[in-house]
Design a protein around this nucleic acid. Sequence first.
DNA 1: GTGATCTGAGAAAAGCTTTTACCAATCTCT
DNA 2: AGAGATTGGTAAAAGCTTTTCTCAGATCAC
Lengths: 325, 325
Amino acid sequence: MAAAAAVSISTASKALNDTGRMGSETRERVKRIAAEIGYRPNALARGLLSKRSFTIGLLTNDTYGRFTLPVMAGISDALVDHGVSVFLCAIEDDPALAQIHVDAMLDKQVDGIIATGKRLDRRLPVDLSNLHVPVVYAFTEGTQNSVTFRSDDEQGARLAVEWLVKIGRRRIAHITGPQEFFSVRERAGAYHEVGGHREPVLYGVWAESWGHEAVEQLWKRPGEKPDALFCGNDQIARGAVDALRERGVKVPQDVSVIGFDNWEIVAAQTRPPLTTVDMELKELGRQAGLTVLALAEGRPVEPGVRKLPCRLIVRQSCGGKVPKE
Amino acid sequence: MAAAAAVSISTASKALNDTGRMGSETRERVKRIAAEIGYRPNALARGLLSKRSFTIGLLTNDTYGRFTLPVMAGISDALVDHGVSVFLCAIEDDPALAQIHVDAMLDKQVDGIIATGKRLDRRLPVDLSNLHVPVVYAFTEGTQNSVTFRSDDEQGARLAVEWLVKIGRRRIAHITGPQEFFSVRERAGAYHEVGGHREPVLYGVWAESWGHEAVEQLWKRPGEKPDALFCGNDQIARGAVDALRERGVKVPQDVSVIGFDNWEIVAAQTRPPLTTVDMELKELGRQAGLTVLALAEGRPVEPGVRKLPCRLIVRQSCGGKVPKE
DNA sequence: GTGATCTGAGAAAAGCTTTTACCAATCTCT
DNA sequence: AGAGATTGGTAAAAGCTTTTCTCAGATCAC
């Protein structure tokens, strides 16, 4: 304790926190000595009193971390300046495990909880609606009157298709995931709206093999082939690119392929590297973090769903020029 | 507080913790009422007294989470039963950020810290050697007298090569990452030891494109071609498989390809799915978690480097039969 | 010179739990 | 029946900060 080292007991607190009245030379001296002995206040004791633990919990059921990691990075990035640390709890769609983790976090007096997942239209297997701490949902379905952040898949899809149109493509097919996915329907909707495409939408699964197979199907049909493929995610796009290469179709000269997700591990390693849509998950995490902090501090936050815009990442799988900065 | 609801103040504590002497009916009654009102003790207050926060910090510089996520899953898995929660701090090789996170964790009185990374032979950009909390290193270089867990890459590589030999391959080439990597040298060493291979070792980078290019190099050379490729990671293996297919070489009929890492996102999506070596990172995390807990509880732990065995994952890129269970 | 104001710093309480000490009442044994 | 042991429970302290209260001394005004 700095008190022992210096002179007093509670004076030290006031000195270090710049509160209370005291001589400036005393304040400085306490601060100096505290710095010298490397004194750091015990956050537990502080939290006990202030009812703030400067801790939040992040709950996720996304095992691979495809979505959670960027979100986590954003949260951490936004909150580290406020001295807030993040508990990460990976629950594998296991309600019992989820409850254990939630209870553990509540015991530790987290200031708030952010729930995140791998699907916009699914709930986590645990009810967070009546907790006495604020809850924010990020990239997962929230409850009534909650604050939810999600990507604007419609706008993202529009971005993709408009880009294809802009670089001169007209016969744009859409190869995507299972129709049960909300984002699939939303992206397909935007695909239909932009330009009057008459190419089919091929629903399948989120796998490279499906992208591969879908290209087989498209190229086996009689008549003109598509000159562009808008794929529902980067893995499908990658499978499609591979299938096209095997058929001797050149990407991007003959066919443009665009992905979705900007999962660098897939998008950047594809040959040619994929032009794709980034959901800006880090920014999403940042905003979720700031929001849960605001709620924890009692600042009012309008409930509702906030859609964050996606961003087009231009690489080489579409051709076209990189838009000027 | 349960005390108010029931009868006393400190009696409640003893009742709930099964300590002290008291009538069994009193104990039961307190427990029942506590359960009814959903009372849960404040971990902050408890931690303040017991000097245990039931919290540990996980520090990583692995942005993609390729290594961190399995390790984290193992840690969490091992510690959730002990009521321990995990702070995840992603530091991007930024010493200042790392220090901030470490300080924040120490302020919050973590019971210990686990440092993990993406390379066995690199340190995190922060010194953890003189903290007053235990530190365990997992999949990153530790300091003198520390406890370090790492995969046994030599054994893993032997597993891979022995498997290729067992299924009848004789001309096994090794395509791997940069020679500066300790694991690259260790795997190459094991490769040389097992059988008397005279095929070259091709050092490059950790990318699919390198796997692709390396196959070009090998097949451009005059003379007999390899009948198996032992690749330094799954991405390289995937690039190699793609290159072989483009050359009309059949995998696994003509050439067996084996990877390393068992990064499912790559290994399982390759056509054919990759036989590969799993570093058992989850188990590594589990052991690291239990070790840091032991240290936190004052139990003695022998310092040193612990090598954990890898496991062969047989899929279809090598041919051969799946070993009987 | 004396009452009022101000200043700098310490004392104490609160926050929640666990643990030790303690006390009154009941039991046990001779 | 009375000394000693046992039992069931409460009171209090400790752990570390922050905040509010208090107080002694100094300064100021008249």
